[in-house]
Design a protein around this nucleic acid. Structure first.
Length: 557
DNA sequence: TTAAACGAAGGC
DNA sequence: GCCTTCGTTTAA
């Protein structure tokens, strides 16, 4: 610290009445313009005061103020390598840099900004000035003074070193050794999280936290940020600044709102006490509340409803509501579909009874022995097929019977149920609905097809098959199969399959009806809520075009 | 937001 | 022409 105190910068860096640091020959504060710093005394100068432009500074490697040059004539302004051969004047540099054949490297032009970025406000300056002896490399990413900057050897251990070709890496990351990343100017992600020690962070935290007049150049993070002048405004910086600006704007807005709010409260009462917002109430509010009591809150809410609701109802009645009209259309469609489903259901019920009539009539037929013999003879016994359930080879003659039994055997080993029993009014024989105590579910197979809970009854020896015979697959002939039921392999379980066909279709229609009821309920709820108290208080249709009174589209009208 | 990848400038 | 490494883009 003693070294720093001796620098001319410190002698000159005084503050004004408001503790704002003063710089330059003009002894005025930083006014957020371009500034350049002397590499000897570290004092900062406004570009316009010493006739140095931002453009000129781009080609300067080391810059010294007039006072330092007078005190030590060996100090001369040094320029970047391309201008090194000619110790050109700033004016000449500017002129030259604007020519097409000499372009300032936009990426690295900030290298020379060491004179500029090296700002007295920087918290690093004082400690780093201790290392200000001897030549060290400086750049936009190197202060040239910290330990990593002075280090010349790569560690060969870090991920950046391992990426390097000389260490056998793929050269993908292309960054310099971690241990050589400048602690002052290296990109934040490269050092803050991994290499900045907690100790250093703590040090700067306490420095900035406790910084006041006595700490001189140590400022709060905000002040520090403000104090750094950036020579090259890059695209990304601009974007970043815009974002930051917008965020700052929002924060300011919030802050203003808060202020306004608190001012309003202060205006009434002063201090922390605020008046209850309840109608005609002069009590102070409860902590973290706008009211002195529940009653006041309720009173205000009631008043609001009385005041706003009539107007909203009137408004609601005046303007046609498109959603309401669409809802009505939807209801009409749903009703039509419900009607169709009911008719289909009635049809299925009719078929249900018709089938029962056919089965009853079939049972009255008498077994005909000849048919049985003829049928057996007509079968091709050489053909062999395989059961779809057990894969065993079976005789086609008994295939239907075998496969039906085989399927029933496997199916009965599993359960298919729901925790709810079936409640369909007026429907008979649909679901099995046998309650399973273990799984606590009701069986949801079709009753006629459930092998788990119902077995096919034993067929008496004299029972006739009775299946209605057809011609060309679909045309009923009015005759019935009169083979003994035990022996008829052609129409095995025909009653069961025909009943299942009808029942399955009935179930489908019931599902469809249920879905339509659900839709109707939803639409009705939406329509009811639309003009409800809450909706009227909260929602509003805004008519943007005063000439258009009907908000519906032409198509809907 | 951060890390990885990569084009390219500058130095030697 | 190679090496180093900065700054930007892209992907996660």
């Amino acid at each position: 610290m003693s070294d720093i105190d001796q620098t001319p910068a410190m002698d000159r860096a005084v503050v004004d009445a408001e503790n704002t640091p003063l710089y330059c020959i003009c002894r005025k504060p930083d006014i957020n313009c371009f500034m350049i710093g002397c590499d000897n005394c570290n004092e900062w100068f406004h570009g316009h005061c010493i006739n140095v432009t931002e453009k000129m500074a781009k080609v300067i490697r080391e810059w010294y103020c007039q006072q330092c040059q007078e005190l030590d004539p060996s100090l001369s302004i040094r320029y970047r390598k391309k201008n090194r051969d000619k110790d050109v004047e700033p004016e000449r540099v500017e002129k030259r840099s604007s020519t097409p054949e000499y372009k300032i490297d936009k990426r690295r032009g900030s290298k020379v900004s060491v004179s500029q970025v090296h700002h007295p406000s920087s918290p690093f300056m004082m400690s780093l000035s201790l290392l200000h002896y001897g030549w060290v490399k400086r750049s936009a990413r190197m202060c040239g003074e910290c330990e990593p900057c002075t280090r010349t050897e790569d560690c060969g251990q870090c991920d950046f070193c391992k990426d390097m070709k000389k260490f056998g890496g793929p050269n993908k990351i292309r960054q310099k050794c971690r241990l050589r990343q400048c602690v002052v100017r290296a990109r934040v992600s490269f050092f803050i999280f991994r290499w900045f020690t907690n100790l250093t962070l703590l040090f700067f935290f306490f420095k900035s936290w406790g910084s006041d007049e006595e700490d001189g150049p140590f400022y709060s993070p905000v002040q520090r940020k403000k104090a750094i002048k950036v020579k090259h405004v890059k695209r990304r910086d601009k974007k970043f600044d815009k974002k930051k600006e917008s965020r700052r704007h929002k924060q300011k807005q919030k802050h203003r709102d808060r202020l306004r709010h608190s001012e309003r409260g202060d205006g009434r009462h002063g201090g922390d006490l605020q008046q209850c917002l309840g109608p005609n109430c002069i009590e102070s509010t409860r902590p973290n509340s706008k009211y002195c009591s529940e009653d006041c809150g309720m009173k205000l809410a009631t008043n609001r409803i009385y005041e706003i609701l009539p107007q909203r109802i009137q408004q609601w009645q005046q303007s046609p509501c498109i959603a309401e009209e669409q809802g009505k259309k939807q209801l009409e469609r749903i009703r039509r579909e419900q009607q169709a489903a009911r008719m289909r259901l009635a049809e299925m019920e009719r078929r249900f009874h018709e089938l029962e009539g056919i089965i009853a009539k079939a049972k009255q037929q008498v077994v005909q022995q000849d048919e049985d013999v003829n049928e057996t003879d007509s079968e091709d016994t050489d053909l062999q097929i395989f059961c779809v359930s057990c894969s065993h080879p079976i005789n086609p003659k008994v295939a239907l019977r075998h496969m039906e039994r085989c399927y029933a055997k496997y199916e009965s080993q599993t359960s298919f149920g729901s925790i709810f029993p079936t409640r369909i009014e007026g429907a008979t024989r649909l679901f099995c609905d046998v309650y399973n105590l273990q799984s606590k579910t009701y069986c949801k197979r079709l009753q006629v097809l459930c092998p788990e809970h119902s077995r096919d009854p034993k067929v008496p020896a004299d029972e006739v098959c009775g299946c209605p015979l057809v011609r060309n697959v679909f045309e009923p002939t009015g005759e019935y199969c009169r083979v003994s039921k035990r022996k008829c392999n052609k129409h095995y379980c025909w009653e069961k399959l025909r009943r299942a066909e009808v029942d399955l279709e009935r179930v489908r229609v019931w599902y469809k009806l249920d879905e339509l009821f659900e839709q109707e309920r939803n639409v009705r709820t939406a329509m009811t809520n639309r003009a409800g108290l809450l909706a009227l208080m909260l929602h509003q249709t805004i008519q943007h075009d005063p000439l258009t009174t009907d908000l519906r589209s032409n198509k809907d009208r």
